[in-house]
Amino acid sequence: MMTTNMNTYNPVELMVVLLSREVRDNEISACGALSHIPAAGMLLAKELHARNAELIILNSIFNPFKTSRQFHYLAQRGELGLFFVSGIQIDQYANYNLHQLGPDHAQPDVRFPGGYGGGLIYYAARRSVAFRTEHTKRSFVENVDYISAAGSSPEDTLRLGGPSKVITPKVTFMFNRKINRLELESIHAGFTLEDIVNNTGFAVSNEHAIQTAEPSELELYTLRNIVRQRMINTNTYAKWAENSLN
């Protein structure tokens, strides 16, 4: 629980608010399976600054499509403005890993379900924002064990977009396209640069890092009242909303 200025909020609420700020009005934003935090973030944005945003939340009523083929081709046409992804590991090049851990690809230590369409959408959506609820050296690594989707690709290959930010409970990284690396954009209230350096597996560049703007009273009020109730009413991660957003 963070208490700063006049507002108290939990790390989940903080991440929801930060993700919501990435949603733009008049754009199509989407998230996939097991995406509680982005789902809440998108619904929050829709209540505040992005009233004309189109939202696609997989496995919910917020999905205009009947089949996943329709969603696939929407993204492939370049019409998806923003996609939210996560990964077991994320590295300094904004590659993410949703597949397996261990150095030997043929004999992994752990296997995960993998990513259904992330390896395509990361290249087709105009912007992707990655989120990870655990900010440790095991989740933020120099090089992922397995590349499920790559942060950058050779110039001569067709790519419509790529990573824009990575958001954790401690910081926001931005993806610098000139050098294809993650750089520290801002540090959330209550954390020091030392915390970040000690909990990140790659060298953290902090030249321009500022303090993250904290959730406002309006953002928190809207989230805890309107968005939470909306998620419960529409059965969109209802149990989670009930327990995490208050």
């Binding site: 590349i147 499920s148 790559a150 950058s152 690709s153 067709l158």
Partner: peptide, 22 residues
Amino acid sequence: PIIGLIGTDILKRRLDMKIVEN
């Protein structure tokens, strides 16, 4: 044709997928 997968470890193992010129 597919936009995506370039640079991934998935593509390395998929003999049914190739990178080609448009």
